[in-house]
Amino acid sequence: MPKSKRNRPVTLSKTKKKGREHKENVVNSIRDAVEKYDSAYVFTFENMRNLKFKEFRDRLKSSSRFFLGSNKVMQVALGRSVADEIRSGLHKISKLLRGDSGLCFTSLPKRHPKRLFNEYEDYDFARTGSTATETVELKEGPLDQFTHEMEPFLRKQGMPVRLNKGVVELVSDFVVCEEGKPISPESSRILRLLGIKMATFKLHLICRWSSEDFEFYREGLEDSDIESS
């Protein structure tokens, strides 16, 4: 009888990881982009959604290139000081790569990226741990939006429900989430069922670099902030 493939051991040590070669490829790609495109932007993001970001990136595919990932790797590619920057002034944007941030290289006139970034936002369902933007409370009584098959699932999410003649009924008022407080896994599932979206995926431009000039977009930032960081 042939051996079963289901219980075949797998050696995890053979799994490929993103190591030095990957980092070097990213560094080289960023340096190529510096030479290819006219300007570079640093941007930050809120509530990243990979699919939505891909859609935004595809809009600029013919004229731009984006980089997300390790801030340290991107900083190395650009240069972290005047001494090791690959083009004059690039160490400034390197020091602004902090937290949830990325790079955009483009040859578009500067008014276009600024408008596209400022206008773009997309709403999605909040994930576990994110902060509720409003209080959602369900009142006692029938929940006509749910079918009777969902009653066991709703109970597992902590909702005080029962079936009354085949109709899902809330036996007491129930607070799904409270404004300003973290959303629990159960609350996240209930909000999705209710169709309530609390997460806004948004991109914010921080600064722009070109061989001719450098410009801040975030209010309050100055050259002194970069040099002192």
Rank of each mutant, 00 (worst) to 15 (best):
D225P: 01
G89W: 03
G220P: 04
R162L: 12
S70L: 05
G129K: 04
Q145K: 15
E215Y: 00
R98T: 09
G195A: 05
V171W: 13
C104W: 08
R189L: 13
M1C: 07
I183C: 07
E215H: 03
R189N: 14
Y120L: 05
R57W: 11
G69S: 09
M159T: 03
C207R: 02
V136G: 08
R127H: 15
E24H: 13
E178W: 12
F214Y: 01
S210G: 04
L205K: 03
S63P: 03
V10K: 14
Y123V: 06
G220K: 02
F153S: 08
T106E: 05
S63W: 10
R189V: 10
K18D: 15
R57P: 04
T11E: 15
K36H: 11
L203T: 05
K5Q: 13
A126W: 05
K181E: 06
M1S: 15
T44Y: 07
L103I: 04
K17E: 15
L60F: 09
F201A: 10
Y123W: 15
R192K: 14
P142T: 07
S187F: 04
S63C: 11
P182C: 05
N7H: 11
D225G: 00
D144N: 11
R8I: 10
T128W: 09
I183L: 08
T11D: 15
